[in-house]
Each structure stands twice: as C-alpha cells, then as structure tokens.
Design a protein around this nucleic acid. Structure first.
Lengths: 349, 349
DNA sequence: CTGAAAGCGCTTACAG
DNA sequence: CTGAAAGCGCTTACAG
C-alpha cells in the first residue's frame, strides 16, 4: 500500500538510519555501498514502495528517463507498428516514450520551431521524416542523440535504420516483368501539397526511381505514372485515372499497400477482374494485404522500431542493460525486403 | 539560434534587470507583474529562446505538463486512432503524451504493480481496459485524475467515454433480422487466455449480450456462437468453424471488423459467395471495411480520444484553454453508433 | 508591482 | 564504505 503522502528518499534513509546519499547510491546501483546496507536500503524502499522523483533526479544531473518519438501520424499502420516496436523495447528497460505526432505541415513547422521536446528527453527517434536542413539543425539543437527511421538515409553521423526503397520497387516491378508484363503503370504517392517544398514527407523518390530504373533496363521507356495522396482513397483515384485511359495497363505497381488497396477497390467496383485483366502489386505487407490477397514486397516494420530503440539505448550508454543483439548498431542499418506472392498478380492474358 | 549551453531563468532575469521571481510570474502569465516588465521579460525570453526547465518547475510545485495514455497496443487501428485523437488535442495546448502499452498479461501486471507512471504525469487516460478492483486501486494510487475510454463504464466517480456496445450489437443483428435472416451466428472475440480471469480485456460481454438479446426478442433461441482471438486470423478460424457445421448459417455477426475481415478471407478462399450465400456484418467501420465492402456498425473512434483528452484538460483546470465544446464533460459520455450498409449483407436466398 | 529567501527532492564532489 | 553540504532551476509565500 502506498501511503497517501509521497514517500521521499529522506523517508527511506530515516528508516535505515543512513544518509540520503547512500540511498541514492544504492538505488542506482552505484558502487560505494556495502552489500549489507544496500540490501537494507533496497528492502526498505520496497516496503515503502518508494519511487525516485524523476524531476529531482534530473535536476541534479541524472537523465530524464524519457525518449521522444516523432512520427507523422500514429493512426496509420506503418507508423503505429514502428511505435509498437519502440515501445516494446523501451518497456523492458523502463524508458518512457513521449509521443509527438506531426499530422500536417503546420504541426510539423510548429514542432521544429518550438522544439517542445527541449529539456524533456534524453534522446529522440525521428520516423519517416526526410528533414530539411533547417529541421536537421533544429534536431541538433535538441542537444541529445537522435536516431532516424526511414526518410533520407543521409543523416550525417547519426544512426539510420530503414529499407532500400529502390530495391523494394525493383523487386516488385521485377516480378511483374518476369511473369510477362510489359505495359506496367505506377500509382505513386506524392506530397499532399505539391507546393509545399519546404517540408518533404516520407514519400521519397526512391520507389519511383526503382520503378523507372527497372523498366528502363527492360527496354521499356516512359512508363505511365500517376501521382496521388498516400491513402486508400488516393489509390482509388489513381486507378480511376488509369482506367480512364484508352489503353489501361496490364499491371500496376503501387507505391504502398494502402494505395494498392484503394486501387483494388476501384477495380472491384469497376468489375475489372484481378489478376486476369489487371495485376496489382504493392509494398509493405500491410495486414490487409493478406486479407485482400494482394501480392506485395514485405518490409520488417516492427523490427525497424525495435532496432531504432536499441540504437538509442546503446547511445545512452545503457549498453549493459541492452540485449546482446543490440550491442552493435552501425551508422546505417538496411533491413531486407522480400516478395510475397499472392493472388493479385498473374501473367497477362 | 540556441546557445550551446542551456539558458536559464537567471539569464533571462539578468538580461532584463529583474528578479527570477518576476520572470517566473511573467512567463506563466501570473498576475503581479506590470505590463511593461512583462513585455520586456517575454521578449527577452524569446530572444534567448528560453524554455522553462520542466523538472525544476515541477519540483517547485508546478505540473509536469505530461499525461499518461495507457492502451493495450498501439499497433491496432482502433487504439492508434484513439491515441491520434488524444495527441491532436494535447498538441494544441502543449501537453506531452507519455505512451504506455500493455501488449500481454505480463506487461499489464508489471504496469499495475510497478506503476511506472507514478510521479511522472498530471493525469492518465486508460483505454479499453476493464479494470480489476486491484487495478482500479492502483490507478487511484497514482494520485492524479483518471479518464477512461471504453472498458467497463462503471468507473465510479471518474469520467468515462465510450459507446453502447450492446446497442451496437443490436443495430447489427437488427439489420440482419430485418432483411430476413433467421439463422444468424456470431463470431465472438474472447480472451486470448481464457484461464486468465485476473486480467479482463476489452472484449467485454456487451456485444454478445446484445446479440443474444436481439435474437431472443425475435424468437430465436440458442443461436450459434464461436469464440476466437480478436484478430484477423481469429476471424478466419471462426468462419472455418462455422463452415465445418452441417448447416452453416445464412448470416454472421462478427464482434469487430477485424474478425469480419478474417471471416471474409475464409469465405473467399472457400469459394462461398458473399452476400449471396452468407451475409457478414462487423462493428467499428475500420478503414478496410470500406475497401472490402463490409457492412458494419460505425463508431466514432478518433472522437473518443479527443473527448477523453478534453476531459483531462478540464480536470487539470485548464478550462480556460480548452475549446468551448470541451467545457462540459459529464461523468459518462456515450457516443452514438450507426449502421453502415455495404455489399456484404443481403436478404437470404 | 517587485525582490530576497526558503524549499522542492534529488546527485555529486569532498571529506572522513 | 559513509555522510554533510552544495547545488540543480524553478515556485511560492513573505516582505517591502
């Protein structure tokens, strides 16, 4: 039972007849306390169900015990899964996760100008945000280690974790080519607001570069590309646009599974048979890809979060408490992607 | 530009030739500072790009500026959408969101025993966790206001926000009855570990009660119910079980859209036509429900998060900064659910 | 309206 | 190994 009024270090010290200095040392596992007194202190702390005041601890030079996680949104499968991976890892070592979402350009701008995380966290994980140089500077000014997941892999000396987006695109397009498609279009996810060049989003160039590269190498120049918003509705509209053409493609490479799901919806409503009339492939291996029998290129999402969290723990010097697998975190870690063949792709008729 | 070393209140005070007491008052908008000095202080703070040390502030009696959000998981649409709603609201007033996930019974137990949020937050929002009395006590011992979203609506004097789960079930079943179905089964989401009676999860009785109630009133006793894990795979298995019976039902009410999506997958693989041979209905209006043309009962998810956040802000006395709509938060707020008719339901043949 | 001073609950040299 | 004391950066009565 916890007494109504807060228990302080003084109370623990009094109960053991030692100074608060010893309590502080014992509780943090610092050397300089005899095993006997350490034990007494530890059990007294337990009996009083004492918890250290993070504020006081921090003020006196300790860490905050908090790490900021910055994501564009949480209400999207990809991001929430990364956050879940981070949370798993932090939970095991008792780090608190402070979540920051930047759902729109205004929020993003506010975040980087106000820097609400200043003085509040020991480190920060930035997910899927290709940073402008101004933003990069601001993150530097946080004055704590930063780890990046996705976005530009070019993050200087900082740790980056992600996949090879160009390769993922090539894997997808390679599959379509291999089974005989020549007339392949892409539905690309572009920025919500094309005018907003200041705030690049996760929808980087790599996937479309991979698409073009692979097509070019197959001797197919100038393939059709339509650009839409990254959402199910965006995918729907993209496919509507493709169906509006005189000669729809026989296969469509979608920037992501969400786009592909929208595309499939349009095809179903239009009565176009998948894969018989049009093949569709996505990227991600979203849970709904399985449900909708969508061929895709899978990427390990939760692992990206996990590894990012481990990288943070390593940088915070918590190496001792980090699992062995996390001991070595390189500056850039590229996780593998792989083709998952399902029923939405087949050779052209 | 932020100087390399941290700027403190002392620096701001020195720059204006006032005491730190005045700076403290001015920055927090407290009375007792002349407009002139207040202005000077405010602009000095801006020039130095000073931010208050939350730790020092807190230690001296101020709030932490943080609110804990406890969810079973983030990597599920329902929870992440609620978190997004909360985050939206907190962002506007500068409250930090500390996320706690309890993915399994062990994590849940650890959370309620260790109470890692103690001394760290000004309030807590508990999402979709029907609490045991022990757990309730522990939340009380946090010593801060608590707001509940979903779970048991019976939370004493505390604020509760949710939907009427029994009504939602009745709306779904009512639709099936109205279009002529009599042979209706339910795929219910049950606890992952039926033995673990200590830690009830979100899968409460209300939806199955609504199902049984509505069936009884239609004169249909003892309808078939299969219980599975709350997941897409669970739904798949539930439908497999129903298809194994000699006489499969003509319609299936699924505990949630995720369950329904799994059920649809099984039906597709089994070559059973939806809705011609079997009608399927879910609850939630998950984004994939639209993609898969699934009839469902929609609930406002993001709003539940928003309203919970507003309730917290109100309780923290931030009434002045809360939008008008949040001014009145009742002890229990029940949000409406509504039928969304799509293509997965039709009269029986 | 303004400031000097105590105190919040810790950590960290510094002595012993 | 152990403790007394200074100090972290604020807020809050208490005087003026």
């Amino acid at each position: 039972m916890i007494p109504k009024q807060t228990v302080n270090m003084t109370d623990v010290a009094a109960r053991c007849g030692v100074s608060i200095a010893s309590v502080s040392r014992a509780l943090r596992g610092e050397p300089g306390v005899s095993p006997a007194t350490r034990d007494r202190i530890l059990s007294a702390a337990r009996e009083l169900s004492y918890v250290i005041s993070p504020e006081a601890s921090r003020l006196s030079g300790g860490p905050t015990g908090r790490v900021g996680v910055v994501v564009p949104r949480v209400d999207a499968w990809f991001y929430s899964t990364i956050v879940a991976g981070i949370a798993d890892e932090f939970d095991t070592v008792g780090i608190d996760l402070v979540l920051c979402t930047l759902p729109d350009p205004a929020a993003r701008h506010r975040f980087f100008e106000a820097l609400p995380l200043r003085r509040k966290v020991d480190a920060v994980i930035v997910v899927s945000l290709p940073l402008s140089s101004r933003e990069r500077t601001r993150i530097d000014q946080l004055g704590v280690p930063a780890v990046f997941v996705g976005g530009h892999r070019d993050v200087g000396a900082r740790v980056w974790i992600g996949i090879d987006d160009e390769l993922a695109a090539r894997q997808a397009v390679g599959h379509l080519l291999r089974i005989g498609h020549r007339d392949i279009a892409m539905i690309q996810a572009g920025p919500a607001d094309p005018d907003d060049t200041d705030t690049p989003w996760a929808t980087d160039q790599a996937r479309i570069d991979g698409f073009h590269g692979q097509m070019r190498e197959a001797g197919l120049a100038d393939p059709t590309v339509v650009t839409v918003k990254w959402s199910i509705d965006g995918g729907s509209r993209g496919m509507e646009e493709l169906l509006s053409r005189t000669e729809p493609p026989t296969a469509v490479f979608c920037h992501s599974d969400e786009i592909a799901l929208g595309a499939l919806r349009t095809l179903r409503r239009a009565g176009v048979a998948v894969p018989h009339q049009i093949s569709v492939i996505g990227v991600d291996d979203h849970p709904s890809a399985d449900v909708n029998d969508l061929t895709t290129v899978a990427q390990p999402v939760r692992d990206q979060g996990r590894i990012a969290a481990q990288a943070v723990l390593t940088q915070l010097g918590g190496a001792a408490t980090v699992s062995a697998s996390a001991q070595r975190v390189n500056a850039a870690t590229t996780l593998p992607t792989r083709l998952v063949i399902r029923g939405s792709t087949a050779p052209p008729r």
